[in-house]
Amino acid sequence: MTLQDLILTLSRFWSERGCLIQQPLDVEVGAGTMHPETFLRVLGPRHWSVAYVQPSRRPADGRFGENPNRLFKHHQFQVILKPSPDGAQRIYLDSLEACGIDPTRHDVRFEEDNWESPTLGAWGIGWQVLLDGLEITQFTYFQQAGGIDLAPISVELTYGLERIAMHLQGVDDVYDLQWAPGVSYGEVRHREEVEQSKYAFGEVDLPAGEFGRAHRDLFDRYYELAERLLASGLTLPALDHTLKCSHAFNLLDASGSIGVTERAAYILRVRKLAVAIAEAHVAWERDHHAAGEGAVATADGQARVDPGAERTAAGQAGGA
């Protein structure tokens, strides 16, 4: 199964189970969780089910295209089910079977691995799913986002697409993966890995210290802008710029430009924004989705997906 077949298979699978198929966020992020389709949708009472691919940048994991397993940018297939159905584990395992992984021929395990994002003020309870010792998915019941207790509880499934594809194709080097028939992952992405790694680790023609300074400066500007946007009631643009702060911070961290305690201070600043954004979003939802306002939910496209629509209706009843 090629990488693109894997994406198509998972998209089809989750679409058939009532998920809206969304698109990646067009801002640099470290994980699919930061997408508003996860970070904001898990807040508040409204039911929502969605799936999307999220290219995820982790500057510190850049290996100049030389490591067969480690990437500056990898791809997550992200699924949010809100509320979490009782059969979440079973449905997830069915999705593996849909991809050609027969659990009875392997050792598939759910091992404790709670997830936490200090910058998003978010955490959850869950597992890493291991396939013969290979971590292929993070399975999390969200408990808090933006410092707010969640109700109902959402389940987040984060599939590591490259890893699963490597397993399916039996290759040991990510660059040997078949992205499409006859087109390798290396052909598609190797150059990007090399250049982005050089950038991430500060191999840039700049005077000493300038790289760090430039990114601190970016961080501060994005931060101020995010604060202004939030004050203007523009929650989604404020989130975009908070995520830009987060990415600038990751670049500073990877290039060794910040110390341990300074690091903690940066994380705290981003978290402060994330918490304020979450609160603003919850307030907006409360104002715009009062009980009986079914039209709003229909207008944003959710009613086209049958089981999702049912959930939406129930959610409004619950939130009333």
Partner: peptide, 30 residues
């Protein structure tokens, strides 16, 4: 909780049936 009421979210009621191994149950299959 009422907020979670939806298809696929139901009360857990006591009974006389258990589940075997997640993948390898011989009785009745997984």
């Amino acid at each position: 909780t009422p907020g979670a009421a939806a298809t696929g979210v139901a009360p857990i009621r006591s009974g006389d049936t258990t589940c075997g191994h997640r993948f390898f149950a011989r009785d009745g299959g997984p």
